[in-house]
């Protein structure tokens, strides 16, 4: 059982959750979108700007488990600085890979590739990713 636990809480995930990227409340940024899972109470506020169709200055804060926090942090690393079209492509590819246990090409996201390690925690991985996908599709 210890191995299964370590497969879920891989060092990379634990470190990312302990030291999340751009974890700061930034109400000054133009966009503020909430990622919320009412079943577990996880709630992240995503703050970012879009300038000339490019996502700039992406931050988040809020409450969530190790997995959802790390996954949100990884997402911000992935799409900050990207054009919105490219960001939507990245987000959609990742969600499809997780939901259909497909291949993840990006090295930094490969920690999530073996979804059998995340039984019952898929919603945690995808919480912010799905919120961002919906928002980018609307725009």
């Amino acid at each position: 059982m210890k191995n299964e636990l370590d497969k879920l809480y891989q060092t990379q995930i634990l470190n990312e959750a302990k030291h999340p990227f751009h974890f700061e409340k930034r109400s000054d940024l133009h966009f503020n979108e909430r990622a919320y899972n009412p079943l577990c109470g996880d709630r992240f506020d995503l703050y970012f700007n879009i300038e000339e169709e490019k996502i700039t200055d992406f931050f988040f804060d809020g409450f969530g488990c190790t997995i959802s926090k790390a996954a949100t942090s990884f997402m911000i690393r992935q799409i900050e600085g990207q054009f919105t079209k490219k960001a939507l492509e990245i987000v959609t590819l990742f969600i499809e890979a997780i939901e259909n246990t497909g291949e993840i090409r990006d090295e930094s996201l490969k920690v999530f590739e073996k979804t059998e390690n995340f039984k019952g925690r898929i919603d945690c991985i995808l919480l912010s990713w799905k919120t961002m996908q919906q928002l980018l599709e609307k725009n």
């Binding site: 059982m1 210890k2 299964e4 636990l5 879920l8 809480y9 577990c40 109470g41 996880d42 409450f63 969530g64 488990c65 190790t66 997995i67 019952g120 925690r121 945690c124």
Partner: peptide, 14 residues
Amino acid sequence: IHPHDVATYLNSKN
């Protein structure tokens, strides 16, 4: 420590 992390850890102890 998030409740889901607690529950997952405790699950590893049955």
